[in-house]
Amino acid sequence: MTENHTTSKQPGILTPLQRLQEKFSDKIIESHVFRGDETAVIGLLNLRSVARFLKETPEMDFNFLMDLTAVDYLFYTGGRVQKEFRFEVVYHFFSLKFNKRIRIKVPVDEKNPQVDTLSDLWASANWYEREVWDMFGIQFKGHPNLKRILMYDQFEGHALRKDYPFNKRQPLIGPIN
């Protein structure tokens, strides 16, 4: 990945990532721009303050939480580096006013997979967080209704984790085949 901290195409106008770096210089663990996608990796505890900043700063105005998902990096060897944390929760924000996007990533530990909820800031986070809980088993602190959304309640395990075999079936009725 290319590290790109300083370049800006238009001098004077900061990109959302640069603004974020200005404000939270000590809290951003890593940042990069890859194929034009701006990404910032932040710590677990700073998520809500960063999210609030993105939403409420008039020059940023990220009014859409476009997508929220997670990635499981178990056994990941891309770039020959293993990740320190097993999961990453990935947020894609979009600003309708400025037509800008930014990606925020939050590394989450395997032993205590818990992230603060954003469902009170963006209503769209509600279902996305349920989906991440269903598929990855990452809990969202303060979520009003954290239960399975795609799979049924009797389903054991979390399907999109890398250690869940893709064809391990748990039928409600009928044989396991």
């Binding site: 990945m1 890859f34 194929r35 996608d37 990404t39 476009m66 997508d67 998902t69 990635v71 499981d72 990941y76 060897t77 891309g78 770039g79 990935v90 894609h92 996007r101 990606r103």
Partner: peptide, 29 residues
């Protein structure tokens, strides 16, 4: 190795694909 998000206008709205690659021939996510 890298990750991208690409939105297109689907018939119902923004259809975005977020792909994480670990450099192999299969997508990581």
């Amino acid at each position: 190795v890298g990750e991208t998000y690409f939105p297109v206008e689907g018939a119902n709205g923004e259809l975005g694909f977020y792909i994480v690659s670990d450099g192999r021939d299969q997508p990581w996510r």
